[in-house]
Amino acid sequence: MSTNELKGWKEIPIGGVIVEAGNSARYETGGWRTFRPLMDGQLCKNCLFCWIYCPDSAIEVEDGKVKGINLRYCKGCGICARECPAKAIQMIEEAKVSAGE
């Protein structure tokens, strides 16, 4: 969020209360990430454990199948990798992945 989008004290609800539901989509937590999940589509059984466990709803699912991981929101917590019964997700240090991009 850039500085010029920030609102003044007269324009925001009092008490730090968030008065609209579902606005966490606007808070992109991907920048927190140190480790990036890499998914091996060959190993994935589409059990959707990762989708259930992901605290940031970053696992994208379409027609009952894992489509990918939304890196705008993925904090790199690694819960998906730990819970995946097929060991289809690996956590790679972000700096190493970024260097290769």
Binding site: I14, G15, G16, I18, V19
Partner: peptide, 20 residues
């Protein structure tokens, strides 16, 4: 009208809430 009380309020908005 679901609302959230007590969310994190860092450098970007804490000052505005104190000003209020």
């Amino acid at each position: 009208q679901p609302v959230t009380y007590g969310p994190l309020d860092l450098q970007d908005y804490y000052s505005e809430h104190k000003r209020q």
